[in-house]
Write a protein that binds this DNA or RNA. Sequence first.
RNA 1: GCGGAAGUAGCUCAGUCGGUAGAGCAUCAGCCUUCCAAGCUGAGGGUCGCGGGUUCGAACCUCGUCUUCCGCUCCA
Length: 512
Amino acid sequence: MTPDELFKNLIAHAKEYGFIFQSSEIYDGLSAVYDYGQMGAELKNNIKNYWWSAMVRLNENIVGIDSAIFMHPRIWEASGHVGAFNDPLIDNKDSKKRYRADVLLEDHLAKIEEKITKEVEKGRKKFGEAFDEKQFRETNPNVVRNAQKAAEITRRMNEALNASDLTALRQLIIDCEIVCPVSGSRNWTEVRQFNLMFSTQMGSVSEDANVIYLRPETAQGIFVNFLNVQKTGRMKIPFGIAQIGKAFRNEIVARQFIFRMREFEQMEMQFFVRPGDEMRWYEHWKDMRLRWHKSLGLGDGKYRYHNHEKLAHYANAAADIEFEFPFGFKELEGIHSRTDFDLGRHQEFSGRKQQYFDPETNESYIPYVVETSIGLDRTVLAVLSAAYHEEKLADGEERVVMRIPAVLAPVKLAVLPLVKKDGLPEKAREIMNSLKFDFNCQYDEKDSIGKRYRRQDAIGTPYCITIDHQTLEDNCVTIRDRDTMQQNRVAIDKLRGIIDEQVNLRKWLERI
RNA sequence: GCGGAAGUAGCUCAGUCGGUAGAGCAUCAGCCUUCCAAGCUGAGGGUCGCGGGUUCGAACCUCGUCUUCCGCUCCA
């Protein structure tokens, strides 16, 4: 079985047992959008709870908020998303390759710049000590011509970009005689704008409707509430604000099941620190976040760091925690040192001071931010792909078992009467009623006991208890473990304690 | 978005030459009563992804479209 086949089986399994369905399936589906079914929703909620508990409840200086998806459009100008998420794209019809139109032009400009540099170097060799670069650049005809050309291209490009004039942009590419690096042809399509942010209108369309974006990240909801939370919560630096919520990106290609979706959910924490302290906290959260992942027991070897060489415009350090999915190591969580970029920009764009008065140093400053940002859907996928096992048993039988960490398992306990007569179902219901307040339980009396065990294995239920005839006499039941398939006979009144010890948050969170 | 492949029951898949839509598993009801899926009897479930076209007749041929997978491409 190749990883590819295994992944396909996992996707089929996730659908068959109610974890994940494609969105709008009866209307042929919607590309890169998925729904969580009855099992998936439970799993996802348990992951949220596990993260929220680890971040908000266990850290006195971290609090959680829930900000709106709609935000003031200026926020996305301040954050840089309007500029950076808005790319003019052009395709070469022969090579079928797609490029960013502005990048093609910039590459072209770089080539011209290279020519100038070569010419200057030639001059330097020729004139030796007496070489006057400034004068050379002003007088050498080749250099002057190329410099003028570059300036003209730059001017036209900026003009077209600022006016969002896509026709002019294409004309410029044609005028520059830019060829596709792959096909070598100048057979270009029209330039199209591709905005990675979804937009809609707020207010009456007939009046001056405002264009509103669906947030492409949850972080900005935290930044714009920084002072609200700091003041009302009497927070002292260092402190963090956490949030779980939906974000939306109109990805060009979205693939690999729920790994890259157009509507997705993030769990983010922005940690505000004194300027200069950020690297220490960056290292701290890098370490803490990996420990959180490892505490789930999916396998320590499935995680690795990937430190970014090329940094985003807001960051002075960045790393990913990558997970070994069936399709390879891929980003699961990002830890970024975002400096004071975001708060600084909001101060600039809103005209409101975004500063903190530090009583220890008697100074006001814009705090620095260390961000931890984890993909919730990706975590669901990580759990599912690590949990999915097709096993061959000793007797030659096969079983599919989801070894979901017990703390995250959608159903904690299945209550199974050995036969559906002789008062066993009644006894089973009685036990279920006493446990359903503590655990998500499932009752099943259909088919043979072995078949019922397999059904529970398929959804990752860590424990099954079986009520037999002897139970009516001694008040003991069989408890069967999902992973080892071992069975023990225990008293009914001990059940709650035994199961709770394995599935409650404390046991798992204490490992972090 | 481009190229290639695919789409038939909840799942995995058959379906001949264009001639009334099939299997296994799953599901449900009943029987049986057994601690690791396979016993017996019966039932439900399909506008063959969707929409045109050709044809007396289309799951099958043809065009378009949607979705998925693989490869490009893109990726804060």
